[in-house]
């Protein structure tokens, strides 16, 4: 909103800031080292991985193709299935959570109904309830209901996103003027139509932010699916890689070079989110200011 002002202010000074750039460069190296490591080491077979080649440089023979083949054929191509599961959980959970958050956040911001105050206080409290502390009780509950080890056992709990409601509420209070809504109502639009036509477009930045945050949350979720799922064909990629890692750390895994595919599997699994973040950055940056600027 004030970006142009800032750019103008900056343009006038235009210092070079060489020491600051050096600091930044050092920071970038630190933050990128693990990425570089995973790129380099997914090219190695196990002998090269553990056999004393430099951890940050390629071994003489590059094994990407071989490792890729192994990654997507090991255990009957299970890895591909894990990716698909991750995508399903992330989208179903993320979209669901966003829809609920937007509706509720808007409702809390724009309607005064009985129980609104109490509801909102409870919501604020819920933002503080540790999500992982809920996993085990939810698991026990689901297992009584016979819901564990199904896709629902992973998707349903991710629908709960009190922080999303909170963000939308905050944003809607500031960015959706009541006058605009009233004007639409005067024109004879129904409440829901007003919401869709007037409020939703205004809420776009916060919607993208909540969506992105919830998709990331479900894509990266580990504890919940770890607890809920037994059938490894339902695993998301995080739990799957954890499974491989523990298999590689057990003696019964003789004969398979799991570490190479674990590392390559890690690399492949982080690519989609990196792309999503890089290409959507202008949205989430806008949305993240919500709540920090009051």
């Amino acid at each position: 909103m004030t970006a142009t002002n800032i750019e103008r202010g900056r343009a006038r000074r235009k210092p070079r800031h060489i020491p600051l750039h050096l600091v930044l460069a050092a920071l970038v190296i630190y933050f990128l080292i693990p990425f570089w490591w995973v790129i380099v080491n997914s090219s190695k077979d196990s002998a090269a991985l553990f056999g004393g080649t430099s951890a940050l440089w390629f071994a003489p023979d590059i094994n990407y193709v071989e490792n890729f083949k192994q990654l997507f054929t090991y255990n009957g191509g299970l890895y591909a299935r894990w990716l698909a599961n991750s995508a399903l959980y992330a989208f179903a959970g993320g979209i669901g959570a966003t829809v609920l958050s937007v509706l509720a956040g808007y409702g809390f911001a724009k309607y005064s109904f009985v129980g609104r105050r109490a509801g909102f206080s409870i919501l604020l409290g819920a933002v503080m309830v540790p999500a992982t502390a809920l996993v085990i009780p939810t698991f026990i509950l689901f297992s009584r209901a016979g819901l564990t080890d199904t896709v629902w056992s992973v998707i349903l709990p991710t629908l709960l996103n009190p922080f999303g409601v909170f963000l939308v509420n905050l944003y809607a209070r500031d960015s959706v003027p009541d006058e605009l809504l009233d004007a639409a109502r005067v024109d004879g639009a129904g409440e829901f139509r007003t919401f869709v036509k007037v409020a939703l477009p205004l809420l776009r930045p916060v919607i993208v932010t909540v969506l992105l945050l919830s998709v990331v949350q479900s894509w990266n979720n580990y504890f919940l699916p770890l607890a809920m799922l037994v059938d490894n064909r339902l695993f998301p990629v995080t739990v799957g890689i954890g499974l491989w890692q523990s298999t590689a750390s057990t003696y019964g895994a003789a004969g398979t070079n799991l570490w190479s595919i674990i590392i390559l599997g890690s690399l492949v699994s982080i690519i989609p989110l990196i792309i999503a973040f890089l290409s959507l950055q202008r949205y989430w940056r806008g949305g993240l200011t919500v709540g920090s600027l009051k």
Partner: peptide, 10 residues
């Protein structure tokens, strides 16, 4: 990008 990974995987 996200859909593609899903599709390839599926």
């Amino acid at each position: 990008a996200l859909l593609l990974t899903g599709a390839i995987a599926a």
